[in-house]
Structure formats: structure tokens, C-alpha cells
Design a protein around this nucleic acid. Structure first.
Lengths: 345, 345
DNA sequence: CCAAGTTATGCACACGTGTGCATAACTAAA
DNA sequence: TTTAGTTATGCACACGTGTGCATAACTTGG
């Protein structure tokens, strides 16, 4: 079948060691010899056996990404596919391959993964936060095995490397945008304050309000679940008292649809009477009426960062920061087109 | 670091060959020896080196999935993640690992992929249809390298293995559902008749209409592009002439939003006056008002089928069918809740 | 012209596992 | 008891590549 390094050596009239050295630039080889070797490689259409290579130098040059059924529903739209593409791209750039492995908690993922990494097929592994648990982290730590977590690890007892959206900054950016548009009384609607990302967003939200001299009203921070109905109910309540908010930050695409419906039923006009920003930039943002301003994250870049961080950890024990946070961008759409105060016409 | 087969052999007082045979059930080994070997393995926490194994028997036991930036936008929501999970699951079941590789057309994917498979790291590869091209297929065919295409290959000059949604059946199922609900004059709105999946859907649409004795009206088959505006325009036209349709099958989630808006503006009530089915089962279907009945595909299963087909091709030259089509299910929502003709109340 | 240094290359072994062949130990048949 | 057959195991080599060490060929300085 395929030619080996020995075939090339024979044809070029040298030993296979010399060919190996040429392949890896490991020693000074005379130009003439190199030339003979290259033309032999070409003639035989030689391609190095990656498996033999990995094996010989005891380095698989491969990282893994653990996935779970959970990813399908938890992550917003193209999150997964973009992130995987980013991971592959960064890995490829550093001459690593990417494997995908099952990290389901169901059949004791920890043991499966332990076996996997003991099998020396991979140098390191990336986990979505939804998969990790204490026993897994403990095991990885004990074995001193390189890993990176996608998302903010919740109750880790050990220090871990992780990359995530900068949710504090997201909260700030949302408030900043609304204030620029002229909104002042800004509510925050969360789909669960037990979730770290909501805690972080609220922290940023408060910080930016303070920065702008706006007093924080805890009544404007409301909590529900990730459904249209929950979003609708909460919005109705917010809009029915006195001191009604003139803008709303919503952590979730389902809830924000509920908000639109509530406003519509109450005859409150978006964006003139109510500005809306959603923290999830899903296709629904463009398709709703009005379309909804949202916070976007470069999920491709998130993958790049995750892989780079992991590879850094693999090749080089010293890694600067444990966490790596990506900022979000405001994508302005119809739900925040409020006229500036005092604008003409 | 990790114990090797030789360490186990030494501890158990046998040769490494014997240990290897026990590991692979390759020969009759006395129970007593087996016992000694197993306890030695346990004591040393032996895990076979997968890399060495693959290398030694010249079989990487690995399949690859090619991905592309394209996947991020082309595929509906959780398609990718579910399918990948399915592929991994089926691969794992047959003791294969899954690698993800970059199949971008940009930097001559064909050459990259050729190098990859010549590197003997993988046994076969799965491509999304969006990536394949003639030169790639030709190369794979010449090398007789196992592969499966996810989607319906368009202009393949060679016979290929592929798995896809059964779009003919989808067209039939949509019509069937609408007829059961009492609709009779059914339109079809496509986002491009050059696309094979639309051609197939239309074929099924026509077939099912005929089957139910409904004459086909070519004026009811309209073509646009994948935007809200296009869907809105086409719907307006359809609803403005005489012989107005009472139902509409829409190939795309953006267009169907346009349809809802057009109906809304014209004061046509969905589902009473217009029934709607969308061929894309995206989150928008649930979030719109009314929610939209759609055709759903088990994308997890699609991944399973793809991997199974590929592995079948790898292990066993004989594979029954070239194509493998998965049926769709109708998920009934608000847009087709028309009362049955003659129903009471 | 010789010694010391440099350059270019080969030899032989290593990596961890699998396997064909040889063989020792045992069993059953004659 | 001998022979043929069976069972259990070891030996040695293979897979393709990488690499430390040895060494031949060549260069340079005195």
C-alpha cells in the first residue's frame, strides 16, 4: 500500500534515519542528499504514518472535546458548531488533531474519561461546564491531566482553567446601550439566579447603573424560568405597578418573546415606550417583530481560546490566567431604536 | 508512568504475549494464568496504550467527520450537535473513535483530506454535503476510501453512500396532515428549486395531492429566497388573487415568519383561514404566534445512521443500499388547528 | 602534514502491542 | 509404553518512526 520511510530511504540511497531527520529538520543534511530524498518522496507519494509517528515519540498530538446530549438543548443555536470549528482550527494550527468523545454523566463519565486519557491517545481535553462534576475534576487534578472547561465552573473545589463569555461585561454593555438610547429605568429579567451567568450579568448591570448615577431598585430585578409564559407573566407584573420600567434586559430568548407579547397585549409600544435587550443572540432576535437588540458572543473565538489555552497548558506548564473571558457585542435591532432625548423632528 | 503490558507480564510471571492473548481472547489460556494476569493488571492499574494498539495492528479504529464554517449557518439549530452526538455514539458502540477535521473548501480541502487519510489515522470519513465536490469524490473513489455523505449529493459523478432526511416523504407527510385537518387548496413555497431537497419535497407534495384526488395547480408552487421579506411577498401574492390557497407548506423558517406577517396584515386568520406547515423545525416554530406546525427529523438518528453506514463500509465491503433516508414526523402546533369539516360545537 | 574540530550519515535500539511458529507439558489412544 | 494429538505458553520478529552514539569524510589551524 502506502510507501514507508524505508522505501524512500532505499530509493534515495540513504538510511531511514536520514529521511527521518529531513522530515523533522533534526540535523544538518547536505543539500544534495535532501534533494534526492525529496524527489524520492515525491516519486513514491510518501505520506508519513501519523499513527506510527505519534506512537514513536509518545505524543498523540491530539486533544479531545467531550460532548453530551445536553449540548443540543442547552447551547444557543450555532454555539456548538461554531465553537467546535474554532477548537478544530486552533488545534490544527498547532498541529493537533481533535477527537470528540462522549462525556455523558449517564454511564459514569468519569470512569470512561479516565480510561480514555490513560489510553494515551490524547494530550488534553475540553469539557462543557454542563458535564463536569467534582469527581471528574478531582480525578483530572490527581493525574495532573491538562483540561479546560467551556463555561464557568460552578462548585469546583480545585482551581480550574476555563473560558467563557464575560457575563459581567455583558450586563454592563446592555445597560450602557440602553442608557445611550435614552432609557433610564432599566429592569433585569433572569431565568434563574442560581445560575452563575445570571449572577455575573446582574453584577455588571448594577455596576453600570451606579456608574451612571442611577439608583438600583431591587424590585426591577425579577426571576423566572426559561419559558415564554414566565417571561410574559414577569413582564406583565413589571408593567402594571407604578414606577414602571422603560427598558428591560432579558437573559433568555424564550422569555423575551413573552415580554414582546405582554407589551403587545398591554398596548405598550416597543421600542418607544419599552426598550428591550436580550442576552441570547438567537435567530429569533431577527425574526420577531420588532426585531430584538441582543448581545452577541463570537463563539468561534471562544473555541479558539479554549483550544489555545489547553494547548498552552499541555506544552508549557506555565499558564498565566486560569480564566479567559470573551466580551460581548451589542447587536442593535428594532427593540432599542428609541429616539434620543431632545432629538429633533 | 503508566504500566505496560510487559510490566503486567513480569508481575504475573508470564511473557507479554500471554498477556496480549488474554487481552484479546486470542488463544486458550489456563484459568489460573488468566487470574494471575488479571490481578496483576488490577494491581498496576494497567490500561492498554491505544496508540500502540492501533499502530501494531495497522488499524486506527477511528472515523472522521469533516466540518466547515458553513455548518454554523446552514444547519438548523441543534442539527449539528445532535448529529455529532449520534455519530459519536454509534462509533463508540463499534469501538471506533471520532475525529473532527476541517473540510473547508477554502484551503484546498481535497488535498488536506487526501493527506489526512493517507496518514492512516482514520478508517473512513463523513462529509456534510455542503463540503463535497467532484475532485474530492473522485479522489476518494480512486483510493477506494470509505466515506459517507450527510445530505443528498447533488452532482456526483460516482455512486456515493449517503444518508439524509427523506424529503419526498416529508412533502407527502405535510400534505397528508393538511388534508386530514380539512385543508384542500395547498400551496408550496420553496427557498430555491435548484436545491435537491426542495425538488424532492415538491415531488412528494404532488404525489400525495394526486393520491387524494386533488388536482395540481402549478401556480400554487412558488419560489423565493430564504428571507422573511421573500416569504412575505410570496404569501401576499398567493393570498391576493382569486383561487386563494387555504394552506401553505413552507420550506424554511425565515420565510414562514414572512407568511405569518403577511397573513396578519391582510387580516387572514391562522389557522382557521390559512393552515401553515414549515419544513424546518427550529425554535422559532414554538415561539411564533401562533406556533407553527413543522416537520421534524431525528438528527441524532441521522448521525447514528451515518456512522453505522460508514463502519459497515469499512468492515465489510458489501453494503446493501447506497442511500439511507430518514422519515420526518409532523409536530402539530397552532398553525394547523383547523376544525375538521363538519365537526360539532 | 598532522591534530583537532566539524559535518553528514549510518547503525542499532526503542516505543507497546500483536502474532506465526516452535515447543514443552499434558492427555488420550493404541 | 509409545505415539499422536492437544493445550498452554514463550520466543522472536513485525509495525513505522525517532534518536543517541559511533564514525567516516571533510575542514581548518598550526
Amino acid at each position: 500500500m502506502g510507501a514507508t520511510i524505508k522505501d524512500v530511504a532505499r530509493l534515495a540511497g540513504v538510511s531511514h534515519s536520514t529521511v527521518s531527520r529531513v522530515l523533522n529538520n533534526k540535523a544538518v543534511i547536505s543539500d544534495e542528499t535532501k534533494k534526492r530524498i525529496y524527489s524520492a518522496m515525491e516519486e513514491l507519494k510518501y505520506v508519513p504514518n501519523d499513527l506510527a509517528r505519534s506512537f514513536a515519540n509518545g505524543n498523540p498530538s491530539t486533544i479531545a472535546l467531550a460532548i453530551d446530549t445536553g449540548n443540543a438543548s442547552d447551547y444557543s443555536n450555532s454555539f456548538f458548531s461554531n465553537t467546535v470549528f474554532g477548537i478544530e482550527t486552533a488545534a490544527h494550527k498547532s498541529n493537533y488533531s481533535l477527537m470528540v468523545v462522549n462525556g455523558s454523566k449517564s454511564h459514569d463519565g468519569t470512569e470512561d474519561i479516565e480510561r480514555l486519557l490513560m489510553g494515551k491517545r490524547i494530550n488534553g481535553i475540553i469539557f462543557p461546564e454542563s458535564i463536569v462534576n467534582k469527581s471528574l475534576l478531582k480525578m483530572l487534578d490527581e493525574k495532573n491531566f491538562p483540561y479546560v472547561i467551556l463555561g464557568h465552573p460552578m462548585d469546583a473545589e480545585v482551581e480550574t482553567d476555563w473560558v467563557d463569555i464575560d457575563n459581567r461585561q455583558a450586563g454592563e454593555a446592555a445597560v450602557k446601550h440602553l442608557i445611550e438610547k435614552g432609557y433610564r429605568r432599566i429592569a433585569f429579567m433572569s431565568d434563574g439566579n442560581d445560575k452563575v451567568f445570571n449572577q455575573d450579568r446582574i453584577e455588571g448591570y448594577k455596576k453600570e447603573l451606579k456608574k451612571n448615577g442611577i439608583e438600583i431598585d431591587e424590585k426591577l430585578i425579577v426571576e423566572g424560568v426559561s419559558t415564554v409564559e414566565s417571561g410574559k407573566e414577569l413582564t406583565e407584573k413589571l408593567l402594571s405597578g407604578k414606577d414602571v420600567p422603560d427598558a428591560l434586559i432579558c437573559s433568555n430568548d424564550r422569555m423575551v418573546v413573552g415580554t414582546l407579547r405582554a407589551a403587545n397585549e398591554k398596548g405598550i409600544v416597543v421600542p418607544e415606550e419599552l426598550g428591550i435587550i436580550c442576552c441570547d443572540n438567537t435567530p429569533v432576535m431577527e425574526l420577531s417583530f420588532p426585531s430584538i437588540t441582543s448581545l452577541n458572543v463570537d463563539t468561534y473565538k471562544l473555541g479558539i481560546k479554549a483550544a489555545e489555552k489547553l494547548i498552552g497548558r499541555i506544552e508549557d506548564e506555565m499558564v498565566e490566567d486560569r480564566a479567559n473571558l470573551l466580551p460581548t457585542d451589542v447587536i442593535e435591532r428594532g427593540s432599542t431604536l428609541k429616539k434620543m432625548k431632545g432629538a429633533g423632528i
